[in-house]
Design a protein around this nucleic acid. Structure first.
Lengths: 194, 194
DNA sequence: CAGAATATCCTAAAGGTATTAGGTTTTCAA
DNA sequence: TTGAAAACCTAATACCTTTAGGATATTCTG
């Protein structure tokens, strides 16, 4: 490798991730990144395709870190224990890395999403569900349900949705986890009405 | 009123909402809006404070429409019927107005959020919950849970999260509704573990 | 090791969006 | 009718993004 600043896509993404957590995902621009490395903006195009590419790679990084955290959390656990561990890992990642967490929700194309660690997360949920003994046909539904709750709750919480300071968010979270476990243990038959 | 184009904050917001549904929320810029009305960008500053103001007002419009839809849906219903009606209204609004739906998730400051129709939605959920006979202390938790599921599910669905085309999204939604009803009917006691 | 190939970084230029500071014209009301 | 207020404009500034093409350093190769 050559050059004077020793840039790398890796370094740029990493710096972008830190910048996202510090200043917010929307503040992570090519210009800001160039300033950070004391380099001209055009120079970044040797390492990144464009601005969109930067955001996508940040999303992929965040999804990967999230999947790793979740993976470590559920290691050696199963059933309710695994469910709670994964859920807590998910939530804690969002609290520790708010910018990356927003990045993880950046819309990806179908192909890119299919190759991302998002599918790892999805598979972990599937594996975790086996302990609950759901019918095969219900697996996908349950995975979607869990994903919805995790995404929705953490989004609301990180956006200050219910940070009124009054009722403890921690208590709501615990109730949410209990409800998830209860739902999976009593998963409804496919006769549900609209 | 004077001028030649007869602009109004109202008209601008309305046009912005339509533009959001047609082209995407992120495409709704002051420039695009000015082009639409064949007016110079600077002219918009007579009606809107700035770009942020536009987005906030679009968010408020969307939240208001959403609350109205939900309100109509639950009129004359209660319990499970009301829950399903509200949930379906929420989801259908998102499908009919994808751009506005994204706008509704635009982060608002605490004061603005407190004055938005988001609180109406929240109160509707609370009213709906009464039929389930939850303890007072559990109301807030349950509202947050429902809000999380609605937000999470519709976000994932509208983002193509599980639009793989294979497993029907409608079936997952029905299962989700059934699970919500079940959860509220068997709401766990406050002894939930972490 | 010399020269070629390549990757890195730069300057320059163009195009888009946002914002502010002024003017000019239109409308409305006293 | 005339003057204030509102609507709209020109002009200028400031970012951010992207492409084109040039210069320099590194690395590969013979």
């Amino acid at each position: 490798m050559a050059g004077r600043a020793g840039l790398t896509a890796q370094k740029l993404i990493q710096a972008g991730a830190e910048m996202a957590d510090d200043l917010g995902f929307e503040q992570v621009t090519l210009s800001a990144l160039a300033r950070r490395f004391d380099v001209k903006v055009a120079s970044l195009y040797s390492h990144l395709k464009n601005s969109e590419d930067l955001k996508v790679r940040l999303a992929l990084l965040a999804l990967d870190e999230l999947a790793n955290c979740a993976g470590e959390a559920i290691a050696g656990r199963s059933g309710k224990d695994a469910l709670f561990a994964l859920a807590n890992a998910y939530r804690h990642y969002g609290q520790a890395h708010p910018g990356r967490f927003v990045a993880a929700r950046y819309p990806l194309s179908d192909e890119i999403a299919a190759a991302s660690s998002g599918v790892k997360l999805s598979r972990m949920l599937g594996a975790l569900l086996r302990a609950y003994g759901l019918a095969d046909a219900e697996q996908t539904h349950a995975i979607r349900f869990l994903g919805s709750v995790f995404l929705g709750y953490t989004t609301l919480e990180s956006a200050g949705g219910f940070a009124h300071g009054d009722v403890a968010a921690q208590a709501s979270w615990e109730r949410t986890l209990a409800v998830l476990d209860l739902s999976l243990r009593h998963w409804p038959p496919s006769s549900a009405a609209v």
